[in-house]
């Protein structure tokens, strides 16, 4: 068994209104100096040893992310 983390982020050129809304709220809460926020998704998958890196990449690219608007990164983490 292993834990795999997949992070999915909107591509830099895609408008991220959610991130902008968060960034816009920070000064109102008294937090200064945050110049930009981008909001994405974080997945944690528990996988058995039969799942190889190519399969994980396919899961990320074809399902967890939409490559038209999102970038993705897969990493295995130590438990």
């Amino acid at each position: 068994m292993a834990r795999v983390v997949v992070d999915v982020m909107p591509k830099p050129e895609i408008l991220d209104p959610q991130g902008q809304a968060v960034a816009g709220a920070l000064p109102r809460l008294g937090f200064q100096g945050v110049t930009e926020v981008r909001q994405g998704k974080h997945f944690e998958l528990e996988v058995d040893d039969s799942v190889d890196d190519a399969t994980l990449a396919k899961i990320a690219e074809s399902f967890l992310a939409n490559p038209v608007i999102e970038d993705w990164a897969v990493r295995r983490v130590e438990l």
């Binding site: 909107p10 895609i14 408008l15 209104p17 959610q18 809304a21 939409n66 038209v68 608007i69």
Partner: peptide, 9 residues
Amino acid sequence: GALVRNSRL
């Protein structure tokens, strides 16, 4: 293409 969150949310 794709559909994303409306601008101004």
